[in-house]
Computed example of a mutant assay.
Amino acid sequence: MSLAAPTHGFLSPTGVEIAFLLVGLVTFGAALVSVTTRQLVHAALWLVVTLGGLAVEYLLLTAEFIAWVQVLIYVGSVVVLLLFGLMLTKAPIGRSPDADSGNRWAALTVAVAAAAALVWVVVDAFRATWIDLDGAAAGSTKVTGESLFQHWVLPFEALSVLLLAALVGAIVLSRKAKADAAGPEVPGARDGQAAAERAEGAR
Score class of each variant (00 low, 15 high):
Tyr58His: 09
Leu61Gln: 06
Met87Asp: 04
Ala55Pro: 03
Ala55Gln: 08
Val49Glu: 06
Leu81Arg: 04
Leu86Ser: 03
Leu54Arg: 05
Trp68Lys: 00
Val71Ser: 02
Gly85Arg: 10
Ser77Ile: 15
Val75Glu: 10
Lys90Pro: 00
Leu54Val: 11
Leu88Ala: 13
Phe84Ser: 05
Leu54Tyr: 03
Glu64Tyr: 14
Val41Met: 12
Ile93His: 12
Val48His: 12
Leu72Ile: 15
Gly53Cys: 07
Leu61Tyr: 02
Lys90Phe: 03
Ala44Tyr: 06
Leu88Pro: 00
Val49Ala: 14
Ala67Asn: 07
Leu72Phe: 14
Gly94Gln: 09
Leu88Trp: 13
Val75Cys: 13
Ala55Leu: 02
Val69Arg: 09
Gly76Asp: 04
Leu72Met: 13
Leu59Ile: 01
Val48Leu: 15
Ala67Asp: 05
Gly85Thr: 12
Gly52Tyr: 11
Gln70Lys: 09
Gly76Ile: 10
Gly52Ala: 12
Leu82Met: 14
Ile93Asn: 02
Gly53Leu: 04
Gly85Leu: 06
Leu60Gln: 06
Ala91Glu: 06
Gly76Glu: 07
Trp68Tyr: 14
Val79Cys: 08
Val80Glu: 06
Phe65Gly: 05
Leu83Gly: 02
Leu86Lys: 04
Thr50Asp: 03
Ile66Gly: 00
Val41Pro: 00
Val48Ser: 11
Thr50Tyr: 09
Arg95Gln: 12
Ala43Gln: 09
Phe65Trp: 14
Arg95Pro: 01
Tyr58Pro: 02
Leu82Glu: 11
Val48Lys: 13
Phe84Arg: 11
Trp46Val: 01
Glu57Pro: 00
Ile93Tyr: 14
Leu61Gly: 07
Ile66Met: 14
Ala63Tyr: 04
Val75Ser: 09
Leu86Asn: 04
Leu45Gly: 01
Lys90Glu: 11
Ala67Pro: 04
Val49Pro: 03
Phe84Asp: 05
Lys90Trp: 03
Val69Met: 15
Leu54Asn: 06
Gly85Phe: 04
Gly53Asp: 01
Val79Ala: 02
Leu54Phe: 11
Tyr58Cys: 07
Leu72Ala: 15
Val41Ser: 07
Lys90Ile: 00
Leu86Gln: 01
Val69His: 03
Ile66Arg: 05
Leu88Ser: 05
Val71Met: 12
Ala55Gly: 12
Ala63Glu: 10
